[in-house]
Write a protein that binds this DNA or RNA. Sequence first.
DNA 1: TTGTTTGACTAATGCGCTTTAGTTTCTCTA
DNA 2: TAGAGAAACTAAAGCGCATTAGTCAAACAA
Lengths: 326, 326
Amino acid sequence: MTIREIAQRAGVSESAVSFALNNRPGVSEYTRRLILQVAEEMKWRPNSAAKALGGAKAGAIGLVFARPAETLGVEPFFLRLVSGIQSALSASSTALMFQVVENVEAETEIYRRWWSERRVDGVLVVDPRTDDPRPGLLAELGLPALLIGGPDPTGTLPSIWADDARAMTSIVEHLTSLGHNRIAHVAGLPELVHTQHRIEAFHRATGAQSVTTDYSDEAGRRVTRELLTAAEPPTAIVYDNDIMAVAGIGAAAALGRAVPADVSLVAWDDSPLCRLTHPMLTALVRDTYAFGRRAAQRLVEVMDGTATGDLEDELPRLTPRGSTQE
Amino acid sequence: MTIREIAQRAGVSESAVSFALNNRPGVSEYTRRLILQVAEEMKWRPNSAAKALGGAKAGAIGLVFARPAETLGVEPFFLRLVSGIQSALSASSTALMFQVVENVEAETEIYRRWWSERRVDGVLVVDPRTDDPRPGLLAELGLPALLIGGPDPTGTLPSIWADDARAMTSIVEHLTSLGHNRIAHVAGLPELVHTQHRIEAFHRATGAQSVTTDYSDEAGRRVTRELLTAAEPPTAIVYDNDIMAVAGIGAAAALGRAVPADVSLVAWDDSPLCRLTHPMLTALVRDTYAFGRRAAQRLVEVMDGTATGDLEDELPRLTPRGSTQE
DNA sequence: TTGTTTGACTAATGCGCTTTAGTTTCTCTA
DNA sequence: TAGAGAAACTAAAGCGCATTAGTCAAACAA
């Protein structure tokens, strides 16, 4: 199935076919229709390699997740994000190259490889970090990129982000409006920028310090136990992901504390997990699918130069369920 | 960074460079080393499009997940599998094209597209079904494929599979050895082949019928409630995934039934979820990472013709925890 | 009528690589 | 020492497409 066969069948030159298929001037309306019809009949599809070779476009974007193997894949976040990304990509029939690696170093290596092999036209970068080597590298390589999850502290890459600080403020406000004044925050990985934002916003709103963790259920359990057995235990706890919140609800039960009577719990990020507990977990809901979709759209715009700078996504909203009260 | 520049720098022809870089005969050892050194210095990487265009190999394999948007991504299965696949692929520097779609029809469309655009050299197919349109299509297209999760009922595609029937038997044996004789099985989607295998094995071992569901927490809760409030409630329940088992443990608690004193529960597939409950869930553990790895290796072998037919993976093993007893 | 412009189309080139067909040099054998 | 054969290397073609530079005829202006 090549362009040449179409040309033969239609009795025109290869160039005419190329013009017709790409909606370029140079063929009459009649010939264009004829060619399109023949191509349709033959179920022709452009060979992506040939296209990429000539036009210098790969027709694909890349996404890398850097996670240690053991923390892989508890969160529904990924699939939703990927799924949203693809919903935007399918319009421009762009493919997604996806890779899971152990750490950020491996991630940068993938970027180098993809770009030098011209496998992708751009990449989506997730989980911005403090002292992140990726923006610098990507700028140096000239590989178009969009940072998902926060304005680039170095100001190098364009980004799309949700306002974690305001979201944290809204959680704290919800809790204080319920009468809580001793609130704790079980944060995630300290090296992530959005963790910093949450911690700072939490500090501004409550004056209290957060505890950082590795997002694991184990950490959620341990920190909850420590908090609840302290001299002045908090009356409300905010967890940076759903896994820790679920672990926390278990730890509270094991200590004989009633949720929400003795302590209220809030999970950052909703998932079916939050509805599996008793009581169900109050959660901060984000539309990750839509987020991924918008991110991909924005990357496409960045790639063809029609957009630069940062784009703020909609604010996550709190969905109160049984785990908060008082 | 093209092969031509390397040729110029090294003072040889482009062909010589190509021979050297691909370890083909036709250049002396001395020249080969020289060329490799120059390539190394210039940090050259082959342009994947050019390579694909000439050699008709895309250097990538494909993986499609067909899931309705709302059931996306609670399971850790996916990232683990992908991660394992990539660990095998990185050796041959093959890329992974990944796509999430709504249903099997969309999945077949992706296969058509990928193959006609020559974006992939082969695909991994997951979740074999009864009346599955995919093996037929893939055979017709001539797109190399490996079925993950069960021998192809039509005998068309080579596959890699774990023995679900024997695994089910081992679970039932474990439960009967604990003294249980009224066992129920909350199965997953009835159209999946492995569900059928489990149901049949369960029937052979116990004489009882299974209940099929959509894997959701909601279904797990509902079925558990129905089972436990029946005239002769089971003393043990086997769930086809972890989500339903967790929902089940909640439903049992809501009905005032103690686990494992009143009813024992077993989850098919382990995950951190199973350790979040009280008591922790006895689970059937599979090494999904290794499974993915082996699957990718096998697909590579299938693609270059060194392997055909089915490959049985290791048997999942039961890890008893607090939820089974008596 | 002649020259110019425009539209429709074709020929030819190149993208970066692999591969086949040649060419040259060197080594071995009789 | 001539001839054959192998080894090392080069030249050239081709993969499928996009793109640029032509070609040719019809339509237009002077």
